[in-house]
């Protein structure tokens, strides 16, 4: 009974976390078109900030996660300035390397002994309740992320980011400070990942660099966004749900190794046939349905 609850809890925990990470990633990667492959760096920074604040000061997750977000945002500010001078595959590669470098740096910080792994105690007496609490906090992170993404989408700021994605040089001849806007998007997206990381570390309980800086997370975050569609936050949200479900079914049906192969095939098919993601396709299908109904209504009116 308990194990089944735990199974569902960690399933949904990961789904919510991936949704937040990918929606946050999309603020820079989707709106501004700068696709980072190092997003996990900020999850890890947030996570280890949590660890450090607990070990040194005994702070609780409510406090450590927001501070983790600030630290992750600050790291993004420093690495983002040089990295965002590059574009396309060069930017992707540099962010990948940044993630590896940040991992090495954090793992070898003196006094933290991160490479050994660090225990974080359950924040509540009962471990099951603690996990449930952390899950709810992660849902809170998702809610915050969605609000931020929605705000950006509808604001003057979002218009600037879209212009950068479409044609950065033209954008610069239209009054847009492209450097600042990109950097801002990078910092916001990193801070949101840091917030998630702060909670995730507590959820893991035993924190080691390999899950906290797992390169696969970086890649999945990008795939989720591309799968769902990068135009709005709804795309990565749908992508995260779908990918987690498909992943889980494949693992249960075929076991780890075979699942990975199937998973890869599913992704190839999706990317080949839905280059703009699932969301635009769904919208297109919805649009194709609506006019038919409108037409029937319209002809009634006109013929009368």
């Amino acid at each position: 009974m308990l194990t089944q609850d735990q199974y569902y809890l960690s399933f949904f925990m990961l789904m919510v976390m991936y949704a937040s990470l990918s929606i946050g990633w999309n603020i820079l990667g989707g709106y501004a078109g700068y696709e980072s492959f190092g997003h996990v760096a900020f999850l890890g920074v947030g996570g280890y900030t949590s660890v450090w604040l607990f070990v040194e000061l005994g702070l609780e997750p409510f406090l450590t996660a927001p501070i983790g977000a600030l630290v992750a945002g600050f790291v993004a500010l420093i690495v983002g300035y040089p990295a965002l001078r590059l574009k396309g595959p060069y930017f992707a590669l540099v962010t990948l390397i940044i993630a590896l470098a940040v991992q090495v740096f954090v793992t070898n910080l003196p006094g933290l002994d991160a490479s050994q792994g660090i225990f974080l105690p359950a924040p509540l007496e009962s471990p099951a309740r603690s996990q449930a609490l952390l899950y709810l906090l992660m849902v809170g992170v998702l809610a915050v992320t969605i609000l931020v993404a929605r705000y950006v989408e509808r604001s003057r700021y979002g218009v600037g980011l879209y212009a950068i994605r479409e044609d950065e040089e033209v954008a610069s001849t239209q009054g847009i400070n492209t450097t600042n806007l990109k950097l801002g998007a990078f910092v916001v997206s990193a801070a949101l990942a840091g917030l998630a990381g702060g909670i995730y570390a507590w959820f893991l309980g035993f924190v080691t660099p390999s899950p906290m800086f797992d390169i696969q997370i970086s890649i999945l975050v990008v795939l989720i966004a591309l799968l769902g569609g990068t135009q709005s936050w709804i795309g990565p949200f749908i992508g995260a749900v779908l990918l987690r479900v498909v992943d889980e079914i494949l693992v249960l049906q075929f076991g780890g190794q075979a699942a990975q192969i199937m998973y890869g095939l599913v992704l190839i098919v999706v990317i080949l046939y839905l280059p703009y993601g699932i969301l635009p396709k769904l919208q297109q299908m919805a649009q194709n349905h609506v006019p038919r109904r409108v037409r029937t209504l319209g002809t009634d009116g006109e013929s009368g």
Partner: peptide, 21 residues
Amino acid sequence: TRPYPGMTSRDNLLPGLLYAG
């Protein structure tokens, strides 16, 4: 010509209006 390709005609004018206009 270099319009912002993925935007509608109207959205093409928004960046200029909001950042310099």
